[in-house]
Design a binder for these strands. Structure first.
Lengths: 186, 186
DNA sequence: CATCAAATACTCGGAACCGAGCGATCGGAG
DNA sequence: CTCCGATCGCTCGGTTCCGAGTATTTGATG
């Protein structure tokens, strides 16, 4: 059980039992799909895995009309514990991750000075847009709920700001020659 | 073909044809395994996929002693093009990604004020250590190769710094009550 | 020259992932 | 009342991922 979506499910069930479709809907309504990759396919796999581990259990299976049955899952005591442990571990232990941009930057040389500068300028543009959007939704959310429930947006904003600054600096460095292409690389 | 490891392979073959094991070894020697997830299993899958796409081709199959055969792969013209396109795209277009810490922060509330502060302090400690290490290897690398070949480390350092600052601030906010736990949450 | 750790080189199968599809039902426009 | 798009709720199966295992060879040590 590695998928963080599992943690999100446990977190939701802490409030009340739900069926998978409702979990996905709730996560999306609350904008949690910015922090978790919510895909229906994976959701059902994850729920099955949580069952295997004994962290959730089927509470009832309801049939409304001729629609597919809805199985409603609830947290077990073990699940409640696991949730906290899970959050704690992810907070405590930084994990080696591999954002795609990091990969790309490793081969920035391949674009040549002007190509690199141009591509980076476009990234900067897009980053500014998405930052604007995040800041907006953060402001909006703060009027509805306590800050504790939106700290993750503050974190995302901070990282995006740092990335944007770095990208802008590198564009400057390329243009000024502070970041030079060695002979033979274009 | 989504796996960035594919991009790394193309990047390597740009220099000279190699067999898979040598690719992995070279990537690790150069510390590229900080930017790409290099797992042997995936590597062979990725190489097969690159073949399917016609971006690389088998050059020769050498048998040394009774060891498994080594198949040496080289870049095709299409592969050369694709490599640049790939880097360009990843630089230009920020992708929605889901770092585990972002997920965890979404449920920071579950740890309670003191638990959260404590876990965050430990994270900060570990971040400082890994930052120290990155800075060291950056300095060392800069004596060997031009800056262009280590910019990705500068990027990683920047992000880690931003994260560390944020974590430290939040610890302060929790302890001072600027980040409060609403009634009923613990 | 016998032994053993390290390096060489890859295969395999189970797990995870996830988008497309499927078969309903509901709400509203005409 | 009848059509149609949106919503409901889930399944299916094809990738993709990857760690553990396998089997050999080299090099260092005693």
């Amino acid at each position: 059980m590695k998928n963080p979506l599992g943690m999100a499910v446990l977190g939701l069930l802490l409030e009340s039992p739900l069926h998978p479709h409702a979990m996905a809907a709730t996560l999306r309504e609350r904008g949690m799909d910015r922090s978790f990759k919510v895909t229906t396919g994976s959701l059902y796999d994850v729920v099955r895995a949580l069952m295997r581990e004994g962290w959730i259990e089927a509470r009832e299976t309801v049939k409304v009309g001729a629609r597919p049955e809805r199985t409603i899952y609830g947290l077990t005591a073990a699940g409640r514990e696991e949730f906290t442990r899970w959050v704690d571990r992810l907070v405590r232990e930084p994990q080696a991750e591999f954002p795609k941009f990091l990969s790309a930057v490793s081969y920035l040389g391949a674009l040549g000075p002007s190509g690199a500068a141009e591509a980076l300028r476009e990234r900067a543009e897009r980053l500014r847009a998405s930052l604007e959007e995040m800041r907006g939704s953060h402001r909006a959310a703060l009027e509805q709920v306590p800050r504790l429930f939106v700290v993750e947006v503050e974190y995302a904003v901070r990282l995006a700001e740092a990335e944007l600054e770095w990208v802008e600096e590198i564009v400057g460095d390329v243009e000024s020659g502070r970041l030079a292409w060695p002979e033979g690389e274009r």
